[in-house]
Computed example of a mutant assay.
Amino acid sequence: MINEVILDDFSLKVTSFEQGVSTSSSGTEAKTIRFDFEVRGGTEYHDVTVHLYKNTFDVKVPELDLSFRGTINNYSTSRTDFTNENSSSLFRLELIEIG
């Protein structure tokens, strides 16, 4: 089981993980990863979303010795109100390798 994905220097503790390859219309292949992680409201939500706004990252999955330059391909969350610090949400993030 994969436990951690690092985006630049920002570590995320993942609850599920999938790895794949996507083929563009030009025939080139790109690594993809999709993972879920929990985020609590308040400060943690702010820190995570500010980092995700960068959109493109140096991606590392230490348990797989995997690293690539990637960008957000898909992103979702189970909640939209993060004002309560005791609330939490499941985030799903899909990243795709870029040139």
Rank of each mutant, 00 (worst) to 15 (best):
G27A: 04
S22N: 14
I72S: 03
S76Q: 09
I72H: 03
D58P: 02
V21Y: 06
T23Q: 13
E29R: 11
L12C: 06
E44I: 04
T80F: 14
D58T: 13
Y75E: 04
S22Q: 13
F91H: 09
E18D: 12
P62Q: 01
F17K: 04
R79L: 13
V39G: 03
I33L: 11
F37R: 05
T28N: 12
I96E: 14
T32V: 15
N74V: 00
E29C: 04
T23R: 12
D9I: 07
R34N: 11
E63S: 14
N55C: 06
Y45V: 01
T15N: 09
M1G: 15
S11F: 02
Y75F: 14
Y53I: 01
M1I: 13
T23G: 01
N3H: 13
L52E: 01
F37N: 03
Y75K: 02
V61Y: 02
N74G: 10
S25F: 08
V48D: 01
L90D: 12
V39I: 09
S25W: 01
F57C: 04
F82I: 06
Y75W: 02
N73Q: 14
S76W: 02
R79A: 10
F82E: 07
N55Y: 10
I96C: 05
D58Q: 15
T71L: 04
T32Y: 04
G20I: 10
F57Y: 05
N74D: 15
D47S: 12
S78Y: 07
N84W: 01
E63W: 00
T32Q: 14
I2E: 10
Q19L: 14
L66N: 07
I33H: 03
S11A: 10
E94K: 10
S16Y: 04
S87M: 05
D36A: 05
R69E: 14
G42I: 02
G70S: 11
V50A: 06
H51G: 01
S87P: 00
I98Y: 09
H51N: 07
L7D: 03
I2C: 06
D81Y: 08
K13M: 09
